[in-house]
Structure formats: C-alpha cells, structure tokens
Design a protein around this nucleic acid. Structure first.
Length: 161
DNA sequence: TTCGTGATACCC
DNA sequence: GGTATCACGAAC
C-alpha cells in the first residue's frame, strides 16, 4: 500500500499549546522527544489512531501529523480495511488514514529511515500547497501550521482557504 | 448538528 | 481513587 501525502499539520512541543509535548514529557509522547525520523502513533478519542513523524533533534519535541493521503497502490486493500468503496475518503483524515494503512501502536517509535513496513519517499504532489489554521485546536490558532494540497479531493473535510 | 468512545493526565 | 479533556468520525 502506498499513497501521496496531501495534508499535514505541524506540532512543535514547547510553546505550542496544541502539542502533546506542551506540558512536558510523558510516557505517551516520549517519542516526540527523541530524534527525528521516527513514527509517533497515538490512540485518541476512544477509537482513532493518528500517525505522526518526529522532526528536530533528540530532546526537542516536534512532529508532523499526517492528516490525509491520496491512495495510489493497494487501494482495494485499503477499501477493505476501511469498509468503504469511497475512494476519495479512504485516507482523508488522521483516523481514516491509519485505519486504511492498518497503522497501530505496533508502529509507535518505528524508525522510518530503516523500517521496511513504514517509510517515505521523496517527491511532491502536483498543485499548490496552501496553509491554514489547524483543525480541532483551541489554542495556538495564530500558527497556520496545517498544510494541504489545494483543491485535492483527498484532503479531509473542511478546507478553509 | 450530535454522540460514541476510551486512553491519558491531572486532581484529589 | 475519580473525572474532564481530547490533534475524530459517522450518522443524522
């Protein structure tokens, strides 16, 4: 299975009230404090996993949340995982994304620079990248740290310009 | 719009 | 020990 990332959000620990790392290191967010290039997978809202990739150096908590992916390979498998045929929504939203790709806590802390099961390739989607405020965040709205591919049907619902 | 859902973190 | 909060999604 693979796809093109079309929507992300940035979280930078200290001084970012929306970040899990804002209140310091905990057992849950510890991988955010580690070196860059690791997967941070957490369970939230009682039913959703979210996939992040850590950035910055060891001791500096920061991560990028992957919010939406445009599926390219393994679409049938993702559809089966999601229980829907709606191609435009297979991975549109953090919870949907992890479900489509079967991502769970087994991948928490995975080194994506070495892993065979989860990794990224360089490249860039066609189209304009736009920024907006992050979704579902009550504080820190002055930071427009949500990035998405303009006009893509694969980004999650609610597309402020 | 509303409601389900459960881990986490923080308050006793 | 209890409980308020939450980087959400699906159904209505």
């Amino acid at each position: 299975m693979s796809g093109v990332v079309v929507e992300t959000e940035a979280y930078r620990g200290l001084n970012d009230p929306a970040s899990h790392a804002y209140r310091g290191k905990t057992s849950r967010n510890r991988v955010m404090f580690g070196p860059a290039g690791h997967a941070y997978v957490y369970f939230t809202m009682g039913m959703h996993y979210c996939l992040n990739v850590t950035t910055e150096s060891d001791g500096s908590p920061a991560a990028v949340l992957l919010r939406a992916v445009q599926p390219t390979e393994g679409i049938e498998e993702m559809a089966a995982n999601r229980g829907t045929q709606d191609k435009g929504r297979l991975a549109s939203g953090p919870g949907n994304l992890t479900k489509a790709f079967k991502i769970d806590r087994n991948l928490n802390g995975e080194d994506i620079t070495k892993s065979d099961s989860l990794y990224f390739e360089s490249g860039r989607a066609e189209g304009a990248i736009r920024m907006s405020t992050r979704v579902g965040v009550s504080h820190g709205k002055e930071r427009k740290w949500r990035y998405f591919l303009a006009g893509s049907p694969y980004v999650s619902k609610g597309r402020p310009s």
